[in-house]
Amino acid sequence: MTDAFARIAAIGVVPVIAIDSVDHALPLADALLEAGLPTAEITFRTQAAVDVLARLRDKRPELLIGAGTLLSPAQVRQAVEAGAAYGLAPGYDPAVVDAARQSGLPFIPGVMTPSDITLAVARGCRLMKFFPATAAGGPSMLKNIAAPFAHLGLSFIPTGGVKMETIDDWLALPEIAAVGGTWIATTRQMHEGDWSGIRNRASAAIARVKELRG
């Protein structure tokens, strides 16, 4: 397990952030850091993503920043150049996995089926994003599709529909490294300047993870 993956597992929560303004980067980082949640997935769903990553790299190096929704080798290279510590995708694409490996970027592909997991394992992946977690069947579904691979020591980050109210159900599974979710900081909340709310939600999530994991 890479250092980045070990840190993610130790934290237990990965906020999934669609941020469309570079001006929001530092207030977001400060809210998360003050809450004791030192990581975030900055998705490539917005044009601001690369600049946000670079700003965080330069100004808040203590934040473990991931680049999400990486759908092409070109985006992998952009993420690396902007300072991402790890990358993620909603699905499995061998070209993207290979680009990440060649770039030295710890990478977490998305999976939803046993076939997806099989392909990712064959490419050397051991930490995967289960997406869309809730729509795909929730904790029960992941438990069942992961069972045949238990001897390989795989870990998962369920993302997509995960909420504060369902953290308990996900973390009950030994295969879960961390939960990922958008509820901590939405684009609208950032535009409204709800930094205290973001900090409070992040703090509550971290506190719950610590309580569940002892």
Rank of each mutant, 00 (worst) to 15 (best):
I176D: 09
H24F: 15
H191Y: 05
P15Y: 07
I145W: 04
I198C: 07
T69E: 08
T186M: 10
T69N: 11
A40T: 09
P109C: 12
R77P: 00
E62A: 15
V50S: 05
L171S: 00
L32C: 04
I42H: 05
W170S: 03
L53T: 01
M164A: 15
F107K: 12
E175C: 04
I206M: 08
L88T: 15
D20W: 01
A147V: 06
H151C: 06
R126H: 13
I206Q: 09
G180V: 05
P109A: 11
R213D: 13
V52Q: 02
G138F: 03
R199S: 08
Q47T: 14
L28N: 09
Y92A: 15
A122S: 12
G12T: 13
A172P: 01
L56S: 11
A49G: 01
V111L: 04
D51Q: 04
D30R: 15
A177M: 11
A82M: 09
A67D: 13
V162K: 00
P15N: 06
R101A: 14
G153N: 10
R201Y: 03
V97H: 05
K129R: 12
I157H: 03
P114W: 04
I167G: 10
A122Q: 04
A25Q: 08
F156W: 09
I198Q: 06
I184P: 02
K210V: 07
E34F: 02
F131R: 06
D194Q: 13
T166N: 15
G161T: 09
A95D: 13
L88H: 09
Y92S: 13
A29S: 08
L142A: 10
E175K: 02
D194A: 11
G180Q: 08
A35H: 01
F149P: 05
V50K: 10
G138S: 04
L171F: 03
D58I: 06
A205Q: 00
T39V: 13
L64A: 00
V97T: 08
A67L: 12
L63T: 07
V14N: 02
S72G: 01
S115Q: 11
